[in-house]
């Protein structure tokens, strides 16, 4: 039930964004549609709705966003440099990374962050043992532990505080 209520508010927010100057006709239709959507798919949205009540997690999310955006910009300059260089200075390979995150949302965000940060692209996830297979544009270390430190060292502690 709680998961349905959260989904309802999220759906209303997106609907308000889509039909911006607010107007009672739009809003009333939006409430009806959001109730329908929340009723049909609400129980699939989140399995642990109590996590949404901790204000600390939102602060960590706000702390995470600037770090993520900064890494993202760095990634773009890195890739642009490698693509623009006449000799193509790349050194690709798929390495294995160990993660201690267990929840679905946490792993999804970790994989997405890996994909959007310098030279790395997540290829597959082994959820049971906590391994991520990452394609790296410029392999610096093939060892699991060192690669883990280099690739996800900055994100994992923060994501753990947000999603676990």
């Amino acid at each position: 039930m709680k998961s349905r209520i959260i989904l309802f508010f999220l759906a209303i927010l997106v609907w308000l964004g889509l039909t911006w100057p607010p107007d009672w006709q739009h809003i009333s239709i939006g409430i009806l549609v959001a109730i329908f959507v929340a009723f049909m798919t609400g129980d699939m949205f989140t399995k642990r709705p109590h996590l949404f009540r901790h204000p600390k997690r939102y602060f960590w999310l706000l702390y995470y966003l600037p770090i993520f955006i900064w890494e993202c910009i760095k990634a773009n300059f890195d890739v642009a440099y490698r693509v623009g260089h006449p000799d193509l200075p790349i050194n690709p390979g798929i390495v294995k990374v160990k993660t201690s995150l267990k929840s679905d949302t946490g792993l999804t965000f970790l994989a997405n962050s890996i994909t959007l940060t310098p030279g790395t692209l997540s290829v597959d996830v082994d959820q049971e043992e906590g391994f991520l297979y990452v394609h790296w544009l410029n392999v610096k270390d093939k060892d699991i532990e060192k690669a883990t430190k280099l690739i996800i060292g900055r994100f994992e502690p923060i994501l753990k505080r947000i999603f676990e």
């Binding site: 773009n76 890739v79 693509v83 690709p92 994909t115 959007l116 692209l121």
Partner: peptide, 17 residues
């Protein structure tokens, strides 16, 4: 870039941002 994976690197990062 040479193969599928490297091309995906360029296209996801640069095109997304």
């Amino acid at each position: 870039l040479p193969d599928v994976y490297n091309r995906l690197q360029a296209s996801t990062k640069c095109v997304t941002l």
